[in-house]
Every structure is written in structure tokens, then in C-alpha cells.
């Protein structure tokens, strides 16, 4: 088992003919991902990397059903691509591009709220269930099948977390990059819930950053759970000087009050998470858990 995607997940690629999409789709197919079709306007009827291409999702749905769609569309096209996927009732959307306007995300979030679709990203490496499904741009050579779930608010620190599980002699059930942007489709809570229910996940590594209030929401949610698996957490940016806070961070301090990295760490500890001050400590803690 795993969460959200496995080898049977039928994957659609929106924007399949682009350069970056081609590079990564090829690697995903090679690592066993079940990619069934692609979308690329004006390329309908063609084949790309051996995958049939359609102009619209509706047309593709006449022949196929999809469990997930990975968006390789550029930032300014994300809103309409997400809308198309939501209207087609695809359960999971993963959007890779960085630079989606914040107001587009406000609109996307209200569309998502009115639907059953779950969105990961934007600005994410995606999701990977090692040896089964690579939905995004993860470097697949560092992953190994196992029982640690990873949820991260930082693309690159996700890889760091993967390497820590490897150093502990463990592998990953599923690795999820929530996205680096100020507003992303899903926060930690949805993913924590999925990992708590997943039989193959024994512990979760959670990576946060000096940014908005997502880590605090995660801590409060975790505290409320009756059945908890261990969560090992790291929050980057304790040393960040006040005047270097970015816009998103500043605005969530304004709306939520004090949320420094040390506040976040304290609240996460109080919620029962094991919080480390250096990512390099994660593998030791994992080993001590004796999973």
C-alpha cells in the first residue's frame, strides 16, 4: 500500500508535449508509472513517447479513465488547466510549475472546495511511490520502497528527507511535496490523515519552513488525532532575520499573530511530534524508533 498513487493509478499528463514534460514523462514511464494519455491542444490524435495525445480531457475520457493528472503547463495556464481537470472530476491533480499568481490560487482553492478533487502543488516536485508511481519530477534514483511517509513544504528539502530515511536504512511508502508557494492546493492535514490510515506507513517525516501557518495547522490537527503514528518534523529558517521574511510569511504573521520558527517548533512538540533542529538528526531518530 501507499497513499494517493500506486502502480495501478491511471495517470493523465496535461501539457505532455513540452520539453520538461517530455524529459520527465519518459523517466516516469521507465520507472513503471502507468501513464495512459496526454493532453496538448492542437496535438490531438498524435502519439508522444508512445502515449496517445488528445486536445481536451473530455475527448481523452471517451477512451480512458483517470485517477490522477500531472500538470506540466506553464504558470499562467495553471488556473484553466486545473479547472478543466476539476470539471472532468479527476480525483487528484499535481501541478509542477512555479510562479502561479496568488489570486489564481485563491480562485483555484474555491473551485477545489466545491469539488471532490485533491490538488498537490503548485511549485512541487510532485508525488512518488517508489517502484510504483512517479507523478512529477522527483529524482527517482534516490528513492527506495519502504514504510516512511514524507510530506514536505519545500521541494529540495524533500530530497534531503528521502536521503535521511536512506541513511537510516529505511525506505519510503509515499513522498509528497506539498509545494513551495504561499498558497498550495493541500496542506499537511489531508496528507497526515492519509498516512495515519495507510497500513504500510509506520512513521511520517514532516518538513516545514519559515513561511505561513501551515505547520501550526498540522500540529493542531495531529494533537487532535486519537490514533497517532510517530511524526518526525523539521522546520527550516530559524536563523532567518526578521527583515528577510517574505510577503507570504509577513501576511500570515499579520493574520495569525506570532508564528516564528521557534513558535512553530514548540507548538509541534506540544502536539506530540518529535522536532529536530538539524535535518541530519532525522535518520538517528528513525533508527531509534526500531520500526
Amino acid at each position: 500500500m501507499s497513499v494517493l498513487a500506486n502502480k495501478n493509478t491511471r495517470v493523465l499528463i496535461q501539457g505532455i508535449t513540452g520539453t520538461q514534460a517530455s524529459f520527465h514523462v519518459k523517466r516516469s514511464i521507465e520507472s513503471g508509472t502507468n501513464i495512459v494519455a496526454g493532453i496538448s491542444p492542437r496535438h490531438g490524435g498524435e502519439e508522444h513517447l508512445g502515449i496517445p495525445v488528445f486536445d481536451t480531457i473530455r475527448e481523452a475520457q471517451r477512451q480512458f479513465s483517470f485517477d490522477a493528472s500531472v500538470l506540466f503547463v506553464p504558470a499562467n495556464g495553471v488556473k484553466s488547466a486545473v479547472r478543466e481537470a476539476i470539471e472532468a472530476e479527476i480525483p487528484l491533480i499535481i501541478s509542477i510549475a512555479q510562479g502561479v499568481p496568488v489570486h489564481d490560487m485563491l480562485e483555484i482553492k474555491s473551485m477545489l472546495n466545491a469539488s471532490k478533487t485533491l490538488m498537490i502543488g503548485p511549485n512541487t516536485p510532485g508525488l512518488i511511490t517508489p517502484e510504483e508511481a512517479r507523478l512529477g519530477i522527483f529524482p527517482e534514483n534516490i528513492h527506495k520502497k519502504g514504510n516512511i511517509g514524507i510530506i514536505s513544504r519545500s521541494s529540495t528539502l524533500t530530497y534531503e528527507a528521502v536521503l535521511e530515511t536512506k541513511a537510516a536504512g529505511l525506505g519510503q511508502s509515499t513522498v509528497i511535496g506539498l509545494g513551495d508557494d504561499m498558497i498550495v492546493g493541500s496542506d499537511f492535514r489531508v496528507m497526515l490523515n492519509l498516512f495515519m490510515q495507510d497500513e504500510d506507513t509506520k512513521a511520517v517525516v514532516l518538513i516545514g519552513k519559515a513561511d505561513n501557518a501551515y505547520e501550526i495547522l498540522a500540529a493542531k490537527y495531529y494533537a487532535s488525532l486519537s490514533n497517532k503514528k510517530p511524526v518526525i518534523a523539521f522546520v527550516a529558517g530559524e536563523a532567518l532575520p526578521y527583515h528577510n521574511y517574505n510577503m507570504g510569511y509577513a501576511s500570515d504573521i499579520i493574520t495569525h499573530g506570532r508564528i516564528t520558527v521557534s513558535d512553530k517548533k514548540r507548538i509541534m512538540r506540544e502536539a506530540g511530534m518529535t522536532v529536530v533542529d538539524n535535518m541530519g538528526q532525522i535518520h538517528q531518530i528513525l533508527q531509534e524508533l526500531q520500526l
Partner: peptide, 16 residues
């Protein structure tokens, strides 16, 4: 770095 959080991580290690 390639990713803002890697800079944050480095900053934390340097400070320690």
C-alpha cells in the same frame, strides 16, 4: 542553492 529552503537550512546550520 536550488530552492529557498536549502538556503534556510544552511543558514540554520551556520548559526549553530
Amino acid at each position: 542553492v536550488n530552492g529557498g529552503s536549502l538556503a534556510l537550512e544552511a543558514m540554520d546550520i551556520l548559526k549553530s
